[in-house]
Amino acid sequence: MFVVTGGPGSGKTTLINALHDRGVVSMPEAGRAIIRDQVQIGGTALPWADRAMFAELMLGWELRSWHEASAVERPVLMDRGVPDVVGYLTLCGLPIPAHVEAAANTYRYNRKVFIAPYWDDIFGQDAERKQDKEEAEETGMVMAETYARFGYRLVELPRLPVERRVQFVLEHLNVNRHPNGPPDRRPKVTPVARG
């Protein structure tokens, strides 16, 4: 499992979608889906309403994605991961509960983490992405610091067109030399049965 993280509007989801079109398995970002669902049902677990509850829902989503990805026998790209929840809480100035810290230490990904740097040329806002440029840039820096704190090695994505980014990631995944990817450090957790 390889995480792609960074600030909003840095092109990570576009990159993951392009890699998915090339046959790379991927897991979607929690934040956007949670926002859509909460708005649809009139919920308050939103970054502009109840940030702590929003973080809890993100944690649940990331753990479920981790379990799904752990059952796949080839590289999986994760659009954010459990440490992103720690980074989000840090960014918001909220306390990091012990169970969130424990989750980030327990549910591990490949040590190589791709980080999409802030890129002014492609940054944009929409109904689900309300952050301004300053917050987007700060988010990227906080995510980099958070993943480094948990012992991951950051690989910055180049500010290049998506096809060049795709090639960059494929080279780092070594998909031609290692069909199943480098080994992940995973806890002894039984994957959740799907039925």
Rank of each mutant, 00 (worst) to 15 (best):
Asn17Met: 12
Asn17Arg: 15
Arg129Asn: 01
Pro47Gln: 09
Asp21Pro: 07
Val155Leu: 11
Gln125Ile: 02
Leu89Asn: 03
Leu94Glu: 03
Pro117Glu: 07
Tyr118Val: 03
Leu91Ala: 07
Gln40Thr: 15
Ile41His: 09
Met53Val: 15
Gly87Ala: 11
Gln38Thr: 10
Val76Ala: 02
Glu73Lys: 04
Leu89Thr: 06
Val82His: 05
His20Ser: 12
Glu56Val: 01
Gln131Phe: 03
Gln125Thr: 04
Asp126Ala: 02
Ser10Thr: 15
Val175Tyr: 13
Pro28Tyr: 05
Gly6Pro: 07
Asp184Phe: 01
Gly42Lys: 12
Ser26Lys: 10
Gly181Leu: 06
Asp132Arg: 01
Cys92Pro: 00
Arg149Cys: 07
Ile34Glu: 04
Leu15Glu: 12
Glu137Ile: 02
Phe54Ser: 09
Leu170Ile: 12
Val175Met: 10
Ser26Met: 08
Arg164Tyr: 11
Gly31Thr: 05
Asp50Glu: 15
Glu135Asp: 06
Phe123Val: 02
Arg177Cys: 01
Val113Arg: 13
Thr13Cys: 08
Gly6Lys: 09
Pro191Lys: 00
Val166Thr: 09
Leu91Asn: 03
Ser26Ala: 10
Ile96Trp: 11
Arg153Ile: 06
Ala102Ser: 15
Gln125Lys: 02
Gln167Glu: 14
Arg51Leu: 09
Glu156Phe: 14
Val192Tyr: 00
